[in-house]
């Protein structure tokens, strides 16, 4: 097949996938229900355990890094909730197609539907956890600034990044079943080099580069900084946009090239 035919079919898949949005939504909601079926708190169990974790980390680290708790706790809450969403989306994308093999082997529904399903499932989960942030803000009497509206495009931005990274990670992990473990291990590393549980100011000048050139930090800050009354810097917007472009090109390329092979690899 010709090169542009691959590309054309991939775009058609994405277009049809978005048109079947209702199916992706039903599947995503179904996944959430299934995971916590017959449990009283359901998804809120995760929220509860996350809240406990955030309070524990917030208190301990505020002493460790000599921070005032009233400022540091909201900081950790924002970062951790959004980071968990990002990292869970990435980990989930490794099994996007493998998990859907029962469907993919039986019908020709667009592969994009399953990518969207992964996004829906993780967005629902984040939506539950997000309650932690206003809760913490209320308890610490953290001020709310107008910049909060900048967080909205930030959410869309993270969704778009997740979409394209899911396209490429999903395809690659279907072919090479060892990659999911590598992805998980790498995410753990990134969690520690990204300013989630420690303040940037605790780094000395020479070490600042690990934040400045960290694409995860830039993307994270698209949401977390506006929530805390800070407008992300122009540099961070550029770095995040650059990362998005790379993810988009990689995602579209791998998906276009190997979309038809997914079913053969399952």
């Amino acid at each position: 097949m010709r090169k542009n035919a691959y590309f054309h079919l991939a775009l058609k898949d994405i277009y049809l996938g978005f048109r079947q949005w209702g199916l992706a939504y039903l599947l995503g909601v179904g996944d959430t229900k299934q995971r916590y079926s017959r449990s009283k708190l359901g998804q809120f169990w995760i929220t509860l355990s996350m809240l406990i974790f955030i309070i524990a980390i917030g208190v301990v680290y505020s002493f460790l890094f000599h921070q005032t708790l009233k400022v540091f706790l909201p900081y950790v809450a924002c970062n951790y909730v959004i980071w968990s969403w990002m990292s869970a989306s990435i980990i989930d994308s490794t099994t996007t197609f493998v998990q859907a093999q029962g469907y993919i082997k039986q019908t020709s529904i667009p592969r994009t539907v399953f990518v969207l399903r992964t996004l829906v499932r993780n967005f629902i989960s984040m939506g539950h956890n997000f309650i932690i942030i206003p809760l913490v803000y209320l308890c610490t009497q953290h001020p709310v600034s107008w910049t909060i509206i900048l967080a909205l495009p930030g959410f869309l931005f993270i969704l778009a990044c997740s979409f394209f990274s899911c396209l490429s990670i999903g395809v690659i992990c279907t072919r090479f079943r060892d990659i999911p473990q590598i992805v998980q291990a790498m995410l753990q590393v990134f969690m520690f080099v990204t300013p989630i549980m420690w303040p940037v100011t605790s780094l000395n000048e020479s070490a600042r580069v690990i934040v400045e050139y960290n694409p995860f930090a830039a993307i994270l800050h698209m949401v977390t900084q506006p929530l805390q009354g800070i407008v992300p810097s122009l540099w961070e917007y550029s770095l995040a946009s650059g990362t998005f472009l790379v993810l988009m090109v990689l995602g579209l390329y791998t998906f276009a090239r190997f979309r038809a092979r997914i079913v053969y690899w399952l």
């Binding site: 179904g30 079926s37 039986q106």
Partner: peptide, 15 residues
């Protein structure tokens, strides 16, 4: 196309 290969495909036992 409709393939009547697996009639219960997509059904979720918890729902």
């Amino acid at each position: 196309v409709s393939s009547l290969l697996d009639l219960s495909m997509g059904m979720d036992p918890e729902q």
